[in-house]
Design a protein around this nucleic acid. Structure first.
Lengths: 338, 338
DNA sequence: GCTGGCACTCGTACGCATCGAGTGCCAGGA
DNA sequence: TCCTGGCACTCGATGCGTACGAGTGCCAGC
C-alpha cells in the first residue's frame, strides 16, 4: 500500500497536470504544494509511483504525467465530488425551466452540460422499455391508413404510419383504441407485448387482419426504438483537448457520430450512482484517450436513461462529476413535474 | 474580359489545388495539363489573374492558390455539375429506402450526404409553414389535461401538453376535434391562424375558455416551431480540412452548434436551384473559410426545406453539387411517397 | 504574343551549439 | 529507516547560419 504522502504526491501531480497541461516535476511540486519535504524526497516517491504504474514520463528528463491507472486511483480514493456553487445551481434551474417539450428538455440539458463542464455532453432520451405508457392513439388518416401514436409518462412521443390490409370502420377503430388503452395505460412498455397478445381474437374476423397489423407495428416500434435516441452537444469543446489535439480529435469525432458506440458507452455505465471510465477503460478504441463520466437520471427513483460527458482523461474530475450529478438531478425533477 | 486560355489556367489551378492542397506553380501546371504553352506564358497569365484578384500567393516565391473570387468564377463559368455515377444513384436509393419515419429519413439523409461528399452535412426538417395539415388530434390524458398532436403532409409530428382552465367533456372534445380538422386539414399551416379565429364563438360559454387555450397553444406551436429544426452529421470530416485545420476547426464547430446560424445560412440560399456560398460570401465569421452548397427539397415542385453541406472552400465543387442535388431529389421522392 | 534565360526571393530542411528543467543516484545526517 | 543536499547526466526545446530549390518577375529575341 502506498503511504499517505505518496498519495498526496499523486494528488498534487494530477491537480497540477490538469491545470497546466504540462508534465510536472519534483521542484515545481514542492513549490506549489505544502508537502513538507524536499524535491529529492518527492523524486523518490515519484519513482515508486512510476514503478507502480500510476504516473509516467513522456520522455526521460521530463516531468511526470498521470497514467489512466493514476487517474483511477485519484478518482476512487483521492477526489470527492465537488458540489456546485449556489449561483450555478440557480443557473441550472433557470436554464432548464421553460422547456416546452421533451426535445426541448433534452436539448437544453445537452447545452447546459456542455457549458458547465466545457466538454462534450451526451444525453440519452428516456428509454421506452423503462417508461410506462401514458396513452396510445390511433388516428384514421385515410380509409385504409392509420397513424399510431405512443406517448410515454416521460413525454416521449413516437409515431408510425400503418397501411391496413382492409378498410377499418370508425367504430372498430374506437373499439380497438379503447381496448388497447385499457390494457396498457400505466403499464411498462416492456410488458406491452404480453398484454396485447390475445387482442385480435376478440375482434370480428374481417377486422382481425388490421388489428394484427396494428399490433405488430406497435411491437415493432417498441423494438426499434429500444435502440435509444440520444443527443450530443459541445463538440467544439474538443478543441480544448490539448496541444496534441489534431491527432486526438479525429477518432473522437468519429466515435461521437456513431450512435451505437455512444449508446454502448452509456449502457456500460452503472444504473445507479456515477460511473467514470478513464482512457483505456473505454472499450471503443477511438475513445482511449478520453474519459467518460455518466450517470442515470429519471423522474422517480429509477433511472429511465443516462447522461454524461466525454472529455480528455486530463479533466477536472471532481468538478465534472459534480456538474453531471447536479444536472441529472434537475432533469429528473423536470421530468417528474411534466 | 479574360481570354479563353486564362480561364483555362484558372480552371487548372483550381483543379490542381483542390487535388493536392498545395500552391500550384507554373511549371507543374504545364506538365499536368495540356495547355500548349510554356511555363513563362502561364506565368504571365497568372500575373494577370492575380491582378484581377482571382488567385493569390501565400508568400513570394510560392505557387498560387485560388481566392474566393477565383472559386466564384470557377463555379459560375468553368464548372458544371457532375452527375453521379449510376452505382452511386443506386446506393442512394437503397440507403434512403426503408426509413420508417421522418426522423429516420432526415437521419439517413444526413449520413448519406456526409458520406457522399465527405463533408459536413446539414438537413433541415420540412418546414411547418410551407407544409399542409394532414391531421390535428386532441387527446384527453386527464380530466383537465389535453395533448395536442399536429401531423403534416411531410410526416412531421409535433405535440404539446395543454392544461385546461376547466374540465372538458368527451363530447365537447370530439366536437372540437371534428371542427378543427374540417377547417384545417389540407390547408397550409401559414393559413391556420385565420381559419380557426372564430372557433371559440361557436362553443358553449363553459367550454370557450378551454377552446381558446387549445387554439392559442396551437398557434404558439406554429410560431415556435417555425424556428425550424435541423440535423447535422459528418463533423469528423472537418479533420480533412487541411494542414491548418486546428485553427479552422474551432470556429466552424462553434458555428455548427448554433442552430440559429445554420438556419440563417440555409435561409440565405435561394428557394429553387442550387446556391453556393464561397468563403467570405458567408455572413457568419466563423465560416469565412468554408463554402456552403445548399439546395431546397420538397415532395412536390415547391421546396419544403433545404439541405446542404459545409466544407472547405477548397472543395470539389462539381462533385459536391452533383451529390447535393441528387440527394435532394431522392429525398423529395421519398417524402412524396409517404 | 510566345519563349527561353536569368537573377532574385523566401520558405524549408538540416546541422550544430546552447540552455535548462528534470532525473537518478549517492553519501551523509536525523 | 527515512530524508536531504549535491552532482553528473539526459534530452527536448530554442536559436542560428547555411544550403537548397521551387517559383517568380522581367527582358531580349523570335
Amino acid at each position: 500500500m502506498l503511504s499517505e504522502r505518496r498519495l498526496e504526491v499523486l494528488r498534487a501531480i494530477v491537480q497540477d497536470y490538469v491545470g497546466t497541461e504540462e508534465p510536472v516535476g519534483s521542484k515545481a511540486l514542492t513549490e506549489r504544494h505544502k508537502l513538507g519535504v524536499s524535491p529529492a524526497t518527492v523524486r523518490n516517491d515519484m519513482a515508486v509511483l512510476e514503478d507502480e504504474g500510476f504516473i509516467a514520463q513522456p520522455h526521460t528528463s521530463a516531468g511526470r504525467i498521470p497514467t489512466d491507472k493514476g487517474y483511477r486511483l485519484f478518482v476512487d480514493k483521492l477526489a470527492g465530488v465537488k458540489p456546485l456553487s449556489s449561483p450555478e445551481r440557480r443557473a441550472i434551474q433557470n436554464f432548464l425551466d421553460g422547456a416546452v417539450d421533451l426535445d426541448d428538455v433534452v436539448g437544453r440539458t445537452v447545452r447546459l452540460l456542455a457549458q458547465l463542464t466545457r466538454q462534450v455532453a451526451v444525453v440519452q432520451y428516456p428509454s421506452l422499455t423503462r417508461s410506462t405508457v401514458r396513452h396510445v392513439e390511433l388516428l384514421s388518416l385515410a380509409p385504409a391508413r392509420l397513424m399510431l401514436v405512443l406517448i410515454t409518462d416521460t413525454g416521449r412521443v413516437e409515431q408510425r404510419m400503418i397501411d391496413c390490409p382492409a378498410p377499418f370502420g370508425e367504430t372498430s377503430l374506437a373499439d380497438l383504441r379503447a381496448r388497447l388503452n385499457s390494457r396498457v395505460v400505466g403499464r411498462r412498455f416492456s410488458d406491452v407485448p404480453q398484454l396485447v397478445q390475445d387482442l385480435p381474437e376478440s375482434f370480428e374476423s374481417e377486422d382481425r387482419g388490421t388489428v394484427s397489423t396494428v399490433l405488430s407495428t406497435l411491437l415493432e416500434t417498441l423494438v426499434e426504438e429500444t435502440e435509444e435516441r440520444l443527443m450530443i452537444g459541445g463538440t467544439s469543446n474538443l478543441t480544448r483537448f490539448g496541444h496534441d489535439f489534431p491527432l486526438m480529435i479525429r477518432p473522437v469525432l468519429e466515435a461521437l457520430e456513431e450512435q451505437v458506440v455512444l449508446l454502448k458507452l452509456l449502457g456500460e455505465a452503472k444504473d445507479s450512482g456515477m460511473t467514470v471510465r478513464i482512457g483505456h477503460e473505454n472499450a471503443h478504441e477511438g475513445l482511449n484517450s478520453t474519459s467518460v463520466v455518466a450517470v442515470g437520471y429519471g423522474s422517480g427513483d429509477e433511472a429511465v436513461a443516462k447522461l454524461g460527458v466525454v472529455g480528455p482523461t486530463r479533466m477536472d474530475y471532481p468538478g465534472t462529476m459534480g456538474a453531471v450529478r447536479a444536472v441529472a438531478r434537475y432533469v429528473g425533477q423536470i421530468l417528474a413535474e411534466s
